[in-house]
Nucleic acid binder design. Structure first.
Length: 551
RNA sequence: GGUCCGUUGGUGAAAUGGUUAACACAUCACCCUCUCAAGGUGACAUUCAUGGGUUCAAAUCCCAUACGGAUCACCA
Protein backbone atom coordinates (compact mmCIF):
# COMPACT_ATOMS: atom_id res chain seq x y z
CA UNK A 1 0.00 0.00 0.00
CA UNK A 2 2.86 2.37 0.75
CA UNK A 3 4.49 1.26 -2.47
CA UNK A 4 1.32 2.08 -4.33
CA UNK A 5 1.18 5.49 -2.72
CA UNK A 6 4.81 6.15 -3.54
CA UNK A 7 4.26 5.35 -7.21
CA UNK A 8 1.13 7.42 -7.23
CA UNK A 9 2.92 10.44 -5.81
CA UNK A 10 6.15 10.09 -7.77
CA UNK A 11 5.29 8.40 -11.05
CA UNK A 12 8.31 9.83 -12.79
CA UNK A 13 10.88 8.64 -10.30
CA UNK A 14 12.32 5.42 -11.60
CA UNK A 15 15.74 5.21 -10.03
CA UNK A 16 16.17 4.01 -6.49
CA UNK A 17 18.34 5.44 -3.78
CA UNK A 18 21.02 2.80 -4.22
CA UNK A 19 21.74 4.27 -7.59
CA UNK A 20 22.80 7.49 -5.94
CA UNK A 21 24.64 5.78 -3.14
CA UNK A 22 26.81 4.15 -5.77
CA UNK A 23 27.09 7.27 -7.89
CA UNK A 24 28.49 9.17 -4.92
CA UNK A 25 30.66 6.64 -3.10
CA UNK A 26 32.45 7.16 0.17
CA UNK A 27 35.34 9.48 -0.33
CA UNK A 28 38.70 7.86 -0.25
CA UNK A 29 40.42 10.17 2.17
CA UNK A 30 42.95 9.76 4.90
CA UNK A 31 41.78 9.13 8.43
CA UNK A 32 40.65 12.34 10.05
CA UNK A 33 40.13 14.25 6.83
CA UNK A 34 37.29 16.69 7.20
CA UNK A 35 34.82 17.15 4.37
CA UNK A 36 32.81 20.29 4.80
CA UNK A 37 31.09 22.99 2.88
CA UNK A 38 29.51 26.36 2.55
CA UNK A 39 25.91 26.23 1.45
CA UNK A 40 24.51 29.70 0.86
CA UNK A 41 21.40 30.66 -0.97
CA UNK A 42 22.23 32.70 -4.05
CA UNK A 43 21.55 36.12 -2.63
CA UNK A 44 24.38 37.71 -4.54
CA UNK A 45 26.78 38.43 -1.71
CA UNK A 46 28.60 36.81 1.14
CA UNK A 47 27.90 38.11 4.61
CA UNK A 48 30.75 38.74 7.04
CA UNK A 49 29.30 36.21 9.43
CA UNK A 50 29.16 33.63 6.65
CA UNK A 51 32.71 34.39 5.69
CA UNK A 52 33.79 33.74 9.25
CA UNK A 53 32.01 30.41 9.41
CA UNK A 54 33.20 29.46 5.97
CA UNK A 55 36.74 30.52 6.69
CA UNK A 56 36.77 28.11 9.62
CA UNK A 57 35.36 25.37 7.43
CA UNK A 58 37.97 26.03 4.77
CA UNK A 59 40.66 26.05 7.43
CA UNK A 60 39.80 22.72 9.00
CA UNK A 61 39.53 21.11 5.59
CA UNK A 62 43.01 22.41 4.83
CA UNK A 63 44.39 21.33 8.16
CA UNK A 64 43.21 17.76 7.65
CA UNK A 65 43.78 17.41 3.91
CA UNK A 66 40.05 17.23 3.52
CA UNK A 67 37.64 18.76 1.06
CA UNK A 68 35.78 22.03 1.04
CA UNK A 69 32.94 22.53 -1.40
CA UNK A 70 30.47 25.21 -2.31
CA UNK A 71 26.88 24.15 -2.69
CA UNK A 72 24.24 26.62 -3.72
CA UNK A 73 20.88 26.29 -2.02
CA UNK A 74 18.54 27.80 -4.54
CA UNK A 75 15.39 26.07 -3.42
CA UNK A 76 13.46 29.23 -2.79
CA UNK A 77 12.37 30.95 -5.95
CA UNK A 78 11.14 33.95 -4.01
CA UNK A 79 14.62 34.75 -2.84
CA UNK A 80 16.18 34.35 -6.21
CA UNK A 81 18.45 37.25 -7.16
CA UNK A 82 19.81 37.93 -10.59
CA UNK A 83 23.41 36.75 -10.88
CA UNK A 84 23.14 35.58 -7.33
CA UNK A 85 25.72 32.86 -7.74
CA UNK A 86 28.17 35.09 -9.54
CA UNK A 87 28.05 37.56 -6.67
CA UNK A 88 29.10 34.87 -4.25
CA UNK A 89 31.78 33.54 -6.56
CA UNK A 90 33.10 37.08 -7.02
CA UNK A 91 33.18 37.75 -3.30
CA UNK A 92 35.17 34.57 -2.89
CA UNK A 93 37.50 35.57 -5.68
CA UNK A 94 38.11 38.97 -4.12
CA UNK A 95 38.92 37.21 -0.90
CA UNK A 96 41.27 34.65 -2.41
CA UNK A 97 38.97 31.99 -1.18
CA UNK A 98 39.61 28.65 -2.84
CA UNK A 99 37.10 25.87 -3.14
CA UNK A 100 37.90 22.27 -3.96
CA UNK A 101 34.52 21.40 -5.40
CA UNK A 102 31.29 23.06 -6.26
CA UNK A 103 30.05 26.06 -8.12
CA UNK A 104 32.71 28.25 -9.62
CA UNK A 105 30.41 30.40 -11.69
CA UNK A 106 26.81 30.98 -12.61
CA UNK A 107 26.88 27.86 -14.79
CA UNK A 108 30.14 26.03 -14.13
CA UNK A 109 31.16 23.69 -11.41
CA UNK A 110 33.93 21.27 -10.51
CA UNK A 111 33.91 18.03 -8.53
CA UNK A 112 32.43 14.54 -8.67
CA UNK A 113 29.68 14.89 -6.15
CA UNK A 114 27.54 17.35 -8.05
CA UNK A 115 25.44 18.89 -9.21
CA UNK A 116 26.18 21.43 -6.54
CA UNK A 117 23.14 23.49 -7.35
CA UNK A 118 20.11 22.19 -5.53
CA UNK A 119 17.66 23.05 -8.26
CA UNK A 120 19.51 20.56 -10.43
CA UNK A 121 19.12 17.80 -7.85
CA UNK A 122 15.36 17.69 -7.61
CA UNK A 123 15.19 14.16 -8.94
CA UNK A 124 17.57 13.01 -6.24
CA UNK A 125 15.50 14.50 -3.45
CA UNK A 126 12.33 13.04 -4.87
CA UNK A 127 13.92 9.63 -5.03
CA UNK A 128 14.68 9.75 -1.35
CA UNK A 129 11.28 11.20 -0.55
CA UNK A 130 9.70 8.39 -2.49
CA UNK A 131 11.67 5.88 -0.46
CA UNK A 132 10.38 7.48 2.71
CA UNK A 133 6.81 7.23 1.48
CA UNK A 134 7.40 3.59 0.65
CA UNK A 135 8.61 3.00 4.15
CA UNK A 136 5.59 4.72 5.60
CA UNK A 137 7.74 7.58 6.89
CA UNK A 138 6.34 10.30 4.70
CA UNK A 139 2.96 11.23 3.33
CA UNK A 140 1.24 13.81 1.18
CA UNK A 141 -0.46 16.71 2.87
CA UNK A 142 -3.20 18.68 1.17
CA UNK A 143 -3.74 21.27 3.85
CA UNK A 144 -4.08 24.76 2.46
CA UNK A 145 -2.11 27.68 3.75
CA UNK A 146 -5.31 29.07 5.25
CA UNK A 147 -6.04 25.84 7.08
CA UNK A 148 -2.52 25.84 8.48
CA UNK A 149 -2.89 29.44 9.62
CA UNK A 150 -6.14 28.50 11.26
CA UNK A 151 -4.68 25.69 13.33
CA UNK A 152 -1.79 27.94 14.30
CA UNK A 153 -4.25 30.49 15.63
CA UNK A 154 -6.02 27.83 17.61
CA UNK A 155 -2.75 26.64 18.99
CA UNK A 156 -1.77 30.15 20.01
CA UNK A 157 -5.12 30.67 21.63
CA UNK A 158 -4.87 27.47 23.65
CA UNK A 159 -1.20 28.14 24.42
CA UNK A 160 -0.26 24.92 22.73
CA UNK A 161 2.97 24.16 21.00
CA UNK A 162 2.90 25.47 17.43
CA UNK A 163 3.26 23.22 14.44
CA UNK A 164 2.00 20.30 12.43
CA UNK A 165 2.15 17.34 14.77
CA UNK A 166 0.05 14.79 16.62
CA UNK A 167 -3.65 15.42 16.27
CA UNK A 168 -2.97 18.61 14.34
CA UNK A 169 -1.41 16.55 11.56
CA UNK A 170 -4.71 15.96 9.88
CA UNK A 171 -3.36 14.55 6.65
CA UNK A 172 -1.24 12.00 8.46
CA UNK A 173 -3.90 9.33 8.43
CA UNK A 174 -5.47 9.88 5.05
CA UNK A 175 -6.46 6.63 3.39
CA UNK A 176 -5.18 5.91 -0.06
CA UNK A 177 -8.65 6.46 -1.43
CA UNK A 178 -8.89 9.86 0.17
CA UNK A 179 -5.51 10.72 -1.25
CA UNK A 180 -6.59 9.61 -4.69
CA UNK A 181 -9.65 11.77 -4.41
CA UNK A 182 -7.57 14.84 -3.58
CA UNK A 183 -5.25 14.04 -6.42
CA UNK A 184 -8.11 13.56 -8.83
CA UNK A 185 -9.39 16.97 -7.85
CA UNK A 186 -6.07 18.32 -9.04
CA UNK A 187 -5.08 19.45 -5.57
CA UNK A 188 -1.48 20.28 -4.86
CA UNK A 189 0.30 18.57 -2.01
CA UNK A 190 3.44 18.83 0.03
CA UNK A 191 5.31 15.76 1.18
CA UNK A 192 5.62 15.63 4.92
CA UNK A 193 7.72 13.54 7.20
CA UNK A 194 5.67 11.14 9.32
CA UNK A 195 7.71 11.93 12.38
CA UNK A 196 8.37 8.91 14.58
CA UNK A 197 9.47 11.21 17.39
CA UNK A 198 8.05 11.79 20.83
CA UNK A 199 8.37 15.27 22.28
CA UNK A 200 8.90 13.81 25.73
CA UNK A 201 12.02 11.94 24.72
CA UNK A 202 15.34 13.68 25.09
CA UNK A 203 18.03 13.61 22.45
CA UNK A 204 21.64 14.13 23.43
CA UNK A 205 24.30 15.34 21.08
CA UNK A 206 27.83 16.64 21.12
CA UNK A 207 28.36 19.82 19.18
CA UNK A 208 32.01 20.52 18.51
CA UNK A 209 31.87 24.08 19.76
CA UNK A 210 28.76 24.13 21.92
CA UNK A 211 29.66 20.94 23.71
CA UNK A 212 26.95 18.69 25.08
CA UNK A 213 23.50 19.78 24.08
CA UNK A 214 20.15 18.17 24.60
CA UNK A 215 16.71 18.81 23.28
CA UNK A 216 13.34 17.13 22.92
CA UNK A 217 12.90 14.68 20.09
CA UNK A 218 11.28 16.18 17.02
CA UNK A 219 7.66 15.25 16.53
CA UNK A 220 6.85 17.82 13.86
CA UNK A 221 5.73 16.46 10.52
CA UNK A 222 7.96 18.88 8.70
CA UNK A 223 7.65 19.53 5.01
CA UNK A 224 10.15 17.56 2.97
CA UNK A 225 9.07 18.56 -0.48
CA UNK A 226 7.13 21.71 -1.22
CA UNK A 227 4.14 21.58 -3.51
CA UNK A 228 6.37 22.37 -6.47
CA UNK A 229 8.38 19.25 -5.68
CA UNK A 230 11.40 21.25 -4.50
CA UNK A 231 12.79 20.27 -1.12
CA UNK A 232 12.94 22.40 1.99
CA UNK A 233 16.30 23.24 3.49
CA UNK A 234 16.03 20.50 6.10
CA UNK A 235 15.48 17.71 3.65
CA UNK A 236 17.96 18.94 1.10
CA UNK A 237 20.56 19.34 3.82
CA UNK A 238 20.18 15.74 4.96
CA UNK A 239 20.23 14.26 1.48
CA UNK A 240 23.02 16.46 0.14
CA UNK A 241 25.35 16.26 3.06
CA UNK A 242 24.98 12.53 3.08
CA UNK A 243 25.48 12.08 -0.64
CA UNK A 244 28.29 14.58 -0.78
CA UNK A 245 29.86 12.71 2.08
CA UNK A 246 30.14 15.70 4.36
CA UNK A 247 31.82 14.75 7.61
CA UNK A 248 31.35 18.07 9.42
CA UNK A 249 28.38 20.36 9.09
CA UNK A 250 29.81 23.74 10.01
CA UNK A 251 27.20 26.46 10.05
CA UNK A 252 25.84 29.40 11.97
CA UNK A 253 24.28 29.09 15.37
CA UNK A 254 20.87 30.01 14.03
CA UNK A 255 20.56 26.39 12.89
CA UNK A 256 20.88 24.95 16.33
CA UNK A 257 17.15 25.09 16.90
CA UNK A 258 16.39 22.94 13.92
CA UNK A 259 18.94 20.34 14.83
CA UNK A 260 16.26 17.98 16.25
CA UNK A 261 14.67 17.89 12.82
CA UNK A 262 17.94 17.23 11.10
CA UNK A 263 18.98 14.48 13.47
CA UNK A 264 15.68 12.77 12.91
CA UNK A 265 15.92 13.14 9.16
CA UNK A 266 19.33 11.53 9.09
CA UNK A 267 18.03 8.68 11.24
CA UNK A 268 14.92 8.11 9.24
CA UNK A 269 16.88 8.09 6.00
CA UNK A 270 19.38 5.66 7.47
CA UNK A 271 22.25 8.11 7.06
CA UNK A 272 25.23 8.26 9.32
CA UNK A 273 25.12 11.45 11.37
CA UNK A 274 27.87 13.93 10.55
CA UNK A 275 29.59 16.01 13.21
CA UNK A 276 27.87 19.29 13.88
CA UNK A 277 29.64 22.55 14.51
CA UNK A 278 27.47 25.54 15.29
CA UNK A 279 29.54 28.66 15.06
CA UNK A 280 28.52 31.76 16.99
CA UNK A 281 26.98 34.68 15.22
CA UNK A 282 28.76 37.94 14.55
CA UNK A 283 26.93 40.64 16.44
CA UNK A 284 26.84 44.37 16.48
CA UNK A 285 25.90 46.84 19.13
CA UNK A 286 22.64 48.60 18.40
CA UNK A 287 21.81 51.25 20.95
CA UNK A 288 21.49 49.40 24.23
CA UNK A 289 21.03 46.02 22.66
CA UNK A 290 23.01 43.63 20.56
CA UNK A 291 21.91 42.08 17.32
CA UNK A 292 23.17 40.05 14.44
CA UNK A 293 25.33 41.99 12.02
CA UNK A 294 22.88 42.91 9.31
CA UNK A 295 23.46 43.46 5.64
CA UNK A 296 20.71 46.03 5.49
CA UNK A 297 21.82 48.13 8.43
CA UNK A 298 25.57 47.58 8.62
CA UNK A 299 27.84 48.30 5.68
CA UNK A 300 30.58 46.22 7.28
CA UNK A 301 28.43 43.12 6.92
CA UNK A 302 29.17 42.97 3.21
CA UNK A 303 32.53 41.79 1.99
CA UNK A 304 32.54 44.49 -0.62
CA UNK A 305 33.00 46.97 2.22
CA UNK A 306 36.48 45.63 2.97
CA UNK A 307 37.37 45.47 -0.66
CA UNK A 308 36.36 49.06 -1.25
CA UNK A 309 38.10 50.24 1.84
CA UNK A 310 41.25 48.45 0.81
CA UNK A 311 41.64 46.36 3.89
CA UNK A 312 43.95 43.53 2.90
CA UNK A 313 42.24 40.20 2.61
CA UNK A 314 44.91 38.55 4.69
CA UNK A 315 44.30 41.03 7.47
CA UNK A 316 40.63 40.14 7.46
CA UNK A 317 41.53 36.48 7.77
CA UNK A 318 43.99 37.26 10.53
CA UNK A 319 41.23 39.05 12.35
CA UNK A 320 38.78 36.23 11.82
CA UNK A 321 41.22 33.72 13.18
CA UNK A 322 41.85 35.96 16.16
CA UNK A 323 38.17 35.83 16.96
CA UNK A 324 37.83 32.17 16.10
CA UNK A 325 40.66 30.76 18.17
CA UNK A 326 41.60 32.84 21.16
CA UNK A 327 45.11 31.40 21.32
CA UNK A 328 45.92 32.44 17.77
CA UNK A 329 47.05 35.98 18.47
CA UNK A 330 49.53 34.86 21.06
CA UNK A 331 50.75 32.10 18.80
CA UNK A 332 51.36 34.53 15.97
CA UNK A 333 53.13 36.87 18.31
CA UNK A 334 55.63 34.24 19.31
CA UNK A 335 55.90 32.88 15.76
CA UNK A 336 56.18 36.04 13.69
CA UNK A 337 57.56 34.23 10.66
CA UNK A 338 54.72 31.75 10.43
CA UNK A 339 51.49 32.25 8.56
CA UNK A 340 47.88 31.34 9.03
CA UNK A 341 48.53 28.05 7.27
CA UNK A 342 50.93 26.94 9.96
CA UNK A 343 48.40 27.43 12.69
CA UNK A 344 46.22 24.50 13.62
CA UNK A 345 42.64 25.42 14.23
CA UNK A 346 40.98 23.85 17.22
CA UNK A 347 37.21 23.71 17.69
CA UNK A 348 37.70 23.49 21.42
CA UNK A 349 39.38 26.86 21.50
CA UNK A 350 36.39 28.47 19.94
CA UNK A 351 34.13 30.55 22.10
CA UNK A 352 30.58 29.31 22.43
CA UNK A 353 29.13 32.72 23.13
CA UNK A 354 28.41 35.32 20.53
CA UNK A 355 30.64 38.34 20.17
CA UNK A 356 30.61 41.82 18.77
CA UNK A 357 32.33 42.62 15.56
CA UNK A 358 35.28 44.86 16.38
CA UNK A 359 36.26 47.01 13.45
CA UNK A 360 38.94 48.79 15.51
CA UNK A 361 40.66 45.53 16.17
CA UNK A 362 40.48 44.58 12.51
CA UNK A 363 42.00 47.91 11.53
CA UNK A 364 44.76 47.43 14.06
CA UNK A 365 45.56 44.03 12.62
CA UNK A 366 45.44 45.50 9.16
CA UNK A 367 47.83 48.27 10.17
CA UNK A 368 50.29 45.78 11.55
CA UNK A 369 49.92 43.59 8.53
CA UNK A 370 50.62 46.41 6.08
CA UNK A 371 53.62 47.51 8.12
CA UNK A 372 55.16 44.10 7.60
CA UNK A 373 54.89 44.22 3.80
CA UNK A 374 57.72 45.26 1.53
CA UNK A 375 57.37 48.66 -0.10
CA UNK A 376 56.83 47.19 -3.55
CA UNK A 377 54.12 44.92 -2.21
CA UNK A 378 52.41 47.92 -0.70
CA UNK A 379 52.80 49.70 -4.00
CA UNK A 380 51.27 46.85 -5.98
CA UNK A 381 48.39 46.47 -3.59
CA UNK A 382 47.58 50.17 -3.49
CA UNK A 383 47.86 50.32 -7.25
CA UNK A 384 45.39 47.46 -7.62
CA UNK A 385 43.06 49.05 -5.14
CA UNK A 386 43.29 52.50 -6.75
CA UNK A 387 42.76 50.98 -10.17
CA UNK A 388 39.32 50.11 -9.01
CA UNK A 389 38.39 52.89 -6.65
CA UNK A 390 40.57 55.97 -7.25
CA UNK A 391 41.59 56.68 -10.82
CA UNK A 392 43.41 59.91 -10.02
CA UNK A 393 45.63 58.20 -7.49
CA UNK A 394 46.07 55.25 -9.79
CA UNK A 395 47.47 57.45 -12.54
CA UNK A 396 49.91 59.10 -10.20
CA UNK A 397 51.08 55.80 -8.80
CA UNK A 398 51.48 54.47 -12.28
CA UNK A 399 53.37 57.54 -13.48
CA UNK A 400 55.73 57.72 -10.49
CA UNK A 401 56.29 54.09 -9.73
CA UNK A 402 59.82 54.13 -8.32
CA UNK A 403 59.17 57.36 -6.50
CA UNK A 404 56.05 55.93 -4.91
CA UNK A 405 57.83 52.79 -3.81
CA UNK A 406 60.50 54.94 -2.18
CA UNK A 407 57.76 56.91 -0.51
CA UNK A 408 56.14 53.78 0.87
CA UNK A 409 59.53 52.63 2.02
CA UNK A 410 60.03 55.50 4.45
CA UNK A 411 60.76 54.03 7.87
CA UNK A 412 59.73 50.62 6.62
CA UNK A 413 62.80 48.44 6.39
CA UNK A 414 63.83 48.69 9.97
CA UNK A 415 63.36 46.93 13.27
CA UNK A 416 60.18 48.78 14.12
CA UNK A 417 58.50 49.91 10.94
CA UNK A 418 55.97 52.71 10.72
CA UNK A 419 52.42 51.62 11.31
CA UNK A 420 50.34 54.34 9.85
CA UNK A 421 48.49 52.75 6.96
CA UNK A 422 45.44 50.94 8.19
CA UNK A 423 43.95 50.41 4.76
CA UNK A 424 44.90 51.15 1.17
CA UNK A 425 42.11 53.69 0.94
CA UNK A 426 43.64 55.81 3.68
CA UNK A 427 47.09 56.14 2.11
CA UNK A 428 46.35 58.89 -0.35
CA UNK A 429 45.15 61.21 2.38
CA UNK A 430 48.46 60.63 4.16
CA UNK A 431 50.83 61.13 1.25
CA UNK A 432 49.07 63.43 -1.19
CA UNK A 433 51.51 66.28 -0.60
CA UNK A 434 54.32 64.22 -2.02
CA UNK A 435 52.75 64.46 -5.46
CA UNK A 436 53.04 67.86 -7.15
CA UNK A 437 49.81 67.23 -9.03
CA UNK A 438 47.96 67.15 -5.73
CA UNK A 439 49.90 69.97 -4.09
CA UNK A 440 48.16 73.33 -4.35
CA UNK A 441 47.35 74.40 -0.83
CA UNK A 442 45.82 77.67 0.25
CA UNK A 443 47.51 79.83 2.87
CA UNK A 444 45.20 78.61 5.61
CA UNK A 445 46.05 74.98 4.87
CA UNK A 446 49.50 75.38 6.35
CA UNK A 447 49.57 74.02 9.88
CA UNK A 448 52.22 76.26 11.36
CA UNK A 449 52.50 75.90 15.12
CA UNK A 450 54.67 77.83 17.59
CA UNK A 451 56.40 79.85 14.93
CA UNK A 452 53.71 81.48 12.87
CA UNK A 453 54.92 84.91 11.85
CA UNK A 454 55.44 85.03 8.10
CA UNK A 455 58.65 87.02 8.42
CA UNK A 456 60.18 84.61 10.88
CA UNK A 457 59.14 81.63 8.77
CA UNK A 458 60.52 83.11 5.63
CA UNK A 459 63.75 84.04 7.40
CA UNK A 460 64.19 80.51 8.74
CA UNK A 461 63.53 78.98 5.36
CA UNK A 462 65.86 81.20 3.38
CA UNK A 463 68.66 80.89 5.90
CA UNK A 464 68.29 77.16 5.87
CA UNK A 465 68.16 76.73 2.11
CA UNK A 466 70.90 79.26 1.39
CA UNK A 467 73.37 78.32 4.06
CA UNK A 468 72.75 74.81 5.27
CA UNK A 469 70.69 72.55 3.05
CA UNK A 470 72.48 70.11 0.78
CA UNK A 471 70.78 67.22 -0.95
CA UNK A 472 73.81 64.99 -0.62
CA UNK A 473 73.93 65.08 3.17
CA UNK A 474 73.29 61.90 5.04
CA UNK A 475 70.76 61.95 7.81
CA UNK A 476 73.28 62.60 10.54
CA UNK A 477 74.84 65.55 8.74
CA UNK A 478 71.42 66.82 7.85
CA UNK A 479 70.41 66.86 11.47
CA UNK A 480 73.60 68.47 12.72
CA UNK A 481 72.98 71.23 10.19
CA UNK A 482 69.50 71.69 11.59
CA UNK A 483 71.09 72.17 14.95
CA UNK A 484 73.61 74.62 13.57
CA UNK A 485 70.72 76.57 12.08
CA UNK A 486 69.09 76.64 15.51
CA UNK A 487 72.22 78.00 17.12
CA UNK A 488 72.56 80.71 14.53
CA UNK A 489 68.96 81.87 14.87
CA UNK A 490 68.63 81.69 18.63
CA UNK A 491 66.74 78.45 18.89
CA UNK A 492 67.82 75.67 21.20
CA UNK A 493 69.54 72.82 19.43
CA UNK A 494 69.49 70.69 22.53
CA UNK A 495 66.10 69.74 23.87
CA UNK A 496 67.32 69.23 27.44
CA UNK A 497 68.87 72.66 27.59
CA UNK A 498 65.71 74.11 26.19
CA UNK A 499 63.55 72.40 28.76
CA UNK A 500 65.79 73.59 31.55
CA UNK A 501 65.69 77.24 30.44
CA UNK A 502 63.10 77.87 27.77
CA UNK A 503 63.25 81.62 28.34
CA UNK A 504 66.78 81.72 26.93
CA UNK A 505 65.63 80.69 23.46
CA UNK A 506 63.20 81.74 20.74
CA UNK A 507 62.21 78.14 20.46
CA UNK A 508 63.83 74.82 19.87
CA UNK A 509 64.89 72.44 17.17
CA UNK A 510 61.42 70.95 17.03
CA UNK A 511 60.01 74.35 16.13
CA UNK A 512 62.53 74.78 13.36
CA UNK A 513 61.80 71.32 11.98
CA UNK A 514 58.14 72.05 12.11
CA UNK A 515 58.54 75.22 10.08
CA UNK A 516 60.39 73.36 7.37
CA UNK A 517 58.04 70.41 7.52
CA UNK A 518 54.95 72.54 7.21
CA UNK A 519 56.46 74.70 4.50
CA UNK A 520 57.13 71.63 2.39
CA UNK A 521 54.04 69.58 3.12
CA UNK A 522 51.53 71.91 4.83
CA UNK A 523 51.26 69.22 7.51
CA UNK A 524 52.68 69.46 11.00
CA UNK A 525 52.69 65.70 11.25
CA UNK A 526 54.53 63.68 8.64
CA UNK A 527 56.97 60.83 8.51
CA UNK A 528 60.66 61.50 8.91
CA UNK A 529 61.48 64.96 7.47
CA UNK A 530 64.86 63.89 6.18
CA UNK A 531 63.37 61.12 4.04
CA UNK A 532 60.73 63.45 2.74
CA UNK A 533 63.31 66.05 1.73
CA UNK A 534 65.39 63.40 0.04
CA UNK A 535 62.42 62.36 -2.03
CA UNK A 536 61.45 65.91 -2.86
CA UNK A 537 64.94 66.94 -3.95
CA UNK A 538 66.45 70.40 -4.10
CA UNK A 539 64.42 71.81 -6.95
CA UNK A 540 61.06 70.88 -5.57
CA UNK A 541 62.05 72.06 -2.11
CA UNK A 542 62.87 75.47 -3.53
CA UNK A 543 59.73 75.46 -5.61
CA UNK A 544 57.57 74.79 -2.61
CA UNK A 545 59.22 77.47 -0.54
CA UNK A 546 58.65 79.96 -3.35
CA UNK A 547 55.09 78.84 -3.60
CA UNK A 548 54.59 79.54 0.07
CA UNK A 549 56.31 82.93 -0.10
CA UNK A 550 54.05 84.01 -2.95
CA UNK A 551 50.83 83.13 -1.16
C1' G B 1 4.43 31.61 24.79
C1' G B 2 7.37 26.70 23.63
C1' U B 3 12.32 24.93 22.60
C1' C B 4 17.51 25.75 22.53
C1' C B 5 22.04 28.54 23.41
C1' G B 6 24.59 32.02 26.14
C1' U B 7 26.16 35.79 30.42
C1' U B 8 34.23 37.43 32.91
C1' G B 9 36.37 45.19 32.02
C1' G B 10 34.40 49.91 26.70
C1' U B 11 35.69 45.41 23.08
C1' G B 12 37.66 40.34 21.93
C1' A B 13 38.86 37.10 25.63
C1' A B 14 42.45 33.60 29.15
C1' A B 15 42.00 30.93 33.34
C1' U B 16 38.36 24.35 33.48
C1' G B 17 38.61 24.05 42.26
C1' G B 18 43.92 26.77 44.89
C1' U B 19 48.96 32.96 45.01
C1' U B 20 47.57 40.19 43.65
C1' A B 21 41.51 37.40 37.32
C1' A B 22 46.65 36.38 31.54
C1' C B 23 46.95 38.68 26.89
C1' A B 24 45.29 41.85 22.79
C1' C B 25 42.35 46.17 20.95
C1' A B 26 40.45 50.84 22.59
C1' U B 27 41.09 54.86 26.20
C1' C B 28 44.18 57.89 29.54
C1' A B 29 49.02 59.44 31.63
C1' C B 30 54.20 59.69 31.46
C1' C B 31 59.03 58.62 28.86
C1' C B 32 61.75 58.67 24.22
C1' U B 33 61.88 61.48 19.73
C1' C B 34 62.77 66.84 14.57
C1' U B 35 56.59 66.43 14.35
C1' C B 36 53.63 62.11 13.64
C1' A B 37 53.25 56.76 13.47
C1' A B 38 55.59 53.53 16.42
C1' G B 39 58.29 51.83 20.78
C1' G B 40 58.77 51.82 26.31
C1' U B 41 56.44 52.32 31.24
C1' G B 42 52.12 52.66 33.95
C1' A B 43 46.60 53.28 34.88
C1' C B 44 41.99 50.93 33.71
C1' A B 45 37.24 44.16 36.51
C1' U B 46 38.38 44.62 45.19
C1' U B 47 35.69 41.00 40.97
C1' C B 48 33.76 37.08 37.00
C1' A B 49 24.75 38.71 35.67
C1' U B 50 22.08 37.94 40.69
C1' G B 51 20.74 34.84 44.89
C1' G B 52 21.50 30.40 47.33
C1' G B 53 24.24 25.72 48.03
C1' U B 54 28.68 22.09 47.89
C1' U B 55 33.95 22.72 49.59
C1' C B 56 39.36 24.15 53.85
C1' A B 57 39.06 26.75 49.02
C1' A B 58 34.65 28.59 43.30
C1' A B 59 34.85 32.89 37.76
C1' U B 60 35.39 27.60 37.72
C1' C B 61 30.74 22.28 40.45
C1' C B 62 25.07 22.20 41.68
C1' C B 63 20.18 24.73 41.99
C1' A B 64 17.08 28.89 41.23
C1' U B 65 16.25 33.75 39.26
C1' A B 66 17.28 37.71 35.91
C1' C B 67 18.94 39.36 31.41
C1' G B 68 20.56 38.73 26.21
C1' G B 69 20.33 35.93 21.71
C1' A B 70 18.54 32.13 18.18
C1' U B 71 14.39 29.55 16.44
C1' C B 72 9.25 28.07 16.08
C1' A B 73 7.06 28.85 7.30
C1' C B 74 5.42 25.04 1.34
C1' C B 75 12.83 30.92 3.89
C1' A B 76 17.42 29.38 4.01
Amino acid sequence: MNKELADLLFPNITKDTNYYEELYPERNLAEGAIVTRFAPSPTGFVHMGSLRTTFIARKVANDTNGVFFLRIEDTDQKREVENGIQGIVDDFKNFDFKIDEGRIGEYEEIGNYGPYLQSERVEIYQTFAKLLVEKGLAYPCFCSEEALDETRKIQELNKERLGYYGSFATCRNLTIDQIKEHLNNGEKFVTRLKSPGNFNNRVFLEDLVKGKIEFPENDLDVVLLKSDGIPTYHFAHAVDDHLMRTTHVIRGEEWLSSLPIHVQLFNVLGFELPSFVHVTLVNKKDGEGVRKLSKRKDPEAALSYYHERGIPVDAVYLYLMTTANSNFEEWLDSNPDKTLDDFKFDFKKMSSSGSLFDLDKLLNISKNYISRLKADEVYNNVLTWAGKYDTEFYQLLDKYKDYSIKLFNIERECEKPRKDYEAYSSIKSQVWYMYDELFNPAKEDYEFKNVSSSDEISMILTTYVDKYYSESDDQETWFSKMKALCDELGYASNMKEYKANPENFKGNVADISTVIRVALTTKSMTPNLYDIMQLLGTNRIKQRINYLNNL
